[in-house]
């Protein structure tokens, strides 16, 4: 038996590999896959009363989701806000990653550490500090009033979709800077020299060489920012107001005060589906674009 085991382990790489992977895979199956599956099943159930759930399978929760305008609206808004966050984050961090990759010669690591350090400090505190910056009696308003630039607080700063986008773009910056920097830094500098040598201007070189080669980083950043932000709860709750409310806030109340687990589960499933769908489209389009560019 012992000999058999030894032979099994030493001769079959897959057996050894899966023995090592098993804790991680068991974790993913028990703590992620099975809860998600159970949630999917629950979305076909009905909440009868406070404590009671009817487990006859029905599509009614999805009908509920689409018949009341608030759910599709919130879902659409969540996707729209995430899309804007992704776009704003990419546009604002690309020049920075580009600068670090191509112009910073010494202490590149220091730059990277400094740019990603805020990400590690409490997410809740970062969002919260935007609330106090943008707030009615917040830092900006009080500073402007103190300096005499305005007489009344600017009310449009907080409780808006813009505030949500701004806050999230700040909170997720590190997730864009890193993949962008990594893909830009990998580019062989002699390719750019070759491009100049072949008569391309700096601008043309960027569009025809640098940017296409940085696309893996761009795709990475898009997926890593877009998907989680669709489900963000803290930011809309703290700086979104009614205008900036997102689907996750609704899901929270369905699992909380409203106590309608099946409808909450259906909403979560819808969120997951649309996120996956958009992620697939993004990857597909970017691949097409990169093919055309090269």
């Amino acid at each position: 038996m012992k000999k058999f085991l030894r032979k099994l382990f030493s001769k079959h790489e897959n057996v050894r590999a899966y023995a090592l992977l098993s804790p991680a895979l068991i974790l993913v199956i028990l703590a992620m896959a099975s809860p998600l599956l159970l949630m999917l099943v629950t979305s076909f159930h009905t909440q009868v009363s406070m404590m009671e759930i009817d487990s006859t399978l029905t599509l009614d929760r999805y009908a509920d989701f689409f018949s009341k305008p608030v759910y599709p609206t919130l879902l659409f808004r969540s996707i729209k806000i995430s899309f804007l966050v992704t776009l704003v984050t990419l546009l604002t961090t690309y020049p920075l990653a580009y600068y670090i990759a191509f112009y910073v010669k010494k202490n590149k690591m220091l730059w990277i550490v400094l740019m990603t350090l805020p990400f590690w400090t409490s997410y809740l505190l970062r969002v919260f500090s935007w609330r106090v910056i943008l707030g009615h009696k917040g830092v900006i308003n009080s500073a402007l009033m103190f300096s005499g630039a305005i007489d009344e607080p600017l009310s449009f700063l907080i409780y808006s979709q813009t505030a949500v986008v701004l806050t999230l773009a700040h909170a997720w910056a590190a997730f864009a800077i890193l993949p962008l920097y990594v893909s830009l830094d990998k580019i062989d500098k002699s390719l750019l020299e070759a491009s100049y040598d072949l008569g391309c201007s700096k601008f043309q070189t960027f569009w025809r060489v640098t940017f296409p080669l940085s696309l893996p980083g761009v795709i990475g950043a898009i997926l890593i920012i877009f998907i989680p932000t669709v489900g963000d709860y803290v930011t809309p709750q703290l700086v979104g107001g009614t205008d900036g409310r997102m689907l996750s806030n609704m899901i929270q109340s369905l699992f909380g005060r409203a106590n309608n687990f099946p409808l909450g589960a259906a909403s979560a499933v819808m969120m997951l589906l649309s996120v996956s769908f958009v992620a697939l489209i993004v990857t597909y389009i970017t691949k097409k674009v990169s093919l055309r560019m090269s």
Partner: peptide, 17 residues
Amino acid sequence: LPFVIPEIIIAVALIVL
């Protein structure tokens, strides 16, 4: 995957379980 899935989805799924 848990790194990218919206946390709220994992959270509510675990509540259900």
